[in-house]
Amino acid sequence: MQSDDKKTWLKEYTEFAESDSGNVTVPPSLFENLRKRIFPNPWKVFAKMFAIHGVVGFLSLGICNQFGLNPFQTEYSLMNWFMKIAGHSFCMVFCGVLFMATSFLLANFFLSLEELESIKRHQWLQTSVIGLTSLAAFYFFGAELVATFAGLWILGALLGGFFAIEGSYRLRRSFS
């Protein structure tokens, strides 16, 4: 049976290899559709990611306040714990990591592998823009930003974004 399968495979492969593709016209729209699917528009992907981060980032304030912003008026925040175990500077880094990583990890539920790949191609640029915009939003909503702490927070955000994107991508690729 197995040898029959092999024979069939070989027979069909020979037919495939020797077929004259000149007789077949492949409509150009097929490649165009495929290209759009494999290489999605980076601006559209960024807009999608930005929207996801807007929602997830806001919700994450419920578990970890950022720069004293506590819209959900929660009694306990991970920020307090970070502060207790590592001090103020590391707390800022950890908060940045958590704020950015949560968004990129949850984005996996809404983005295709190809969209994730698109983000990965410009990951430093995307995390920087999203991080800086987030800082601007914090400032807009009344947070008091100090340059040193904001710098540490951005560092954490970049690291969190980088590891979340890399980890998600590798994991999803291995299952695809």
Binding site: G22, N23, V24
Partner: peptide
């Protein structure tokens, strides 16, 4: 390694055979 043009060429070379099959 990420060269998109390589994919385009592979499609050009082999899509006819695949479609014919």
């Amino acid at each position: 390694m990420g060269e998109v043009v390589a994919f385009e060429l592979l499609f050009e070379r082999h899509s006819g055979k695949v479609l014919s099959y």
